[in-house]
């Protein structure tokens, strides 16, 4: 999917929902009702709007965000240098791996040739090396792993822009 295609129109209530739900969704019997009350809308409207935004891909996910590191697993950023002529084949190979959680195409003004960047998520730390080898074998290209050595800041909380 091209990113530009995702510019679905959202209104002020959708924006308030997105801003309000980047933080902690409650754990209680009727959590949607609790959030809807804070937003001043009905429970079923909140649920319908979430459904619509997920379908339109305004939201890519709604639910618990798991940190596999805390369960003995690992998240590792990895990159490949994919020749343009081979792009589609390699993309299909890489995306076919369930360990590939996210994948982005990137480009730089300085013509950096590391153009495919993905995150490997595995249940065990050993799974990363195995996934790297498997992707290299299947694609015929080198996979460069960039495990985090230190995390200085991670907070994905962006206000919706008007």
């Amino acid at each position: 999917m091209r990113e530009r295609a995702a510019s679905a129109s959202i209104d002020a209530i959708d924006r308030a929902i997105i801003d309000g739900l980047q933080g902690g969704f409650p754990i209680c019997e009727r959590p949607y009702a609790a959030v809807a009350a804070q937003l001043g809308i009905a429970e079923n409207e909140l649920i319908e709007r979430l459904q619509a935004m997920l379908e339109a891909r305004v939201l890519t996910r709604f639910g618990p965000m798991f940190q596999v590191e805390r369960m003995g697993g690992a998240f590792v950023l990895a990159a490949m240098r994919v020749p343009e002529a081979d792009w589609q084949r390699v993309l299909e190979v890489v995306n076919s791996f369930p360990q590939v959680a996210h994948n982005y195409r990137r480009e730089s003004d300085r013509n950096c040739d590391f153009n495919m960047w993905f995150v490997l998520a595995t249940e065990t730390a050993d799974g990363i090396a195995a996934a790297v080898r498997a992707i290299e074998d299947a694609s015929g290209l080198a996979v460069f792993a960039f495990p985090k050595l230190q995390e200085y800041f991670v907070e994905m909380k962006l206000a919706v822009r008007p």
Partner: peptide, 8 residues
């Protein structure tokens, strides 16, 4: 990490 929405 949290329960919530991931916006595009």
């Amino acid at each position: 990490r949290r329960i919530g929405a991931v916006p595009n």
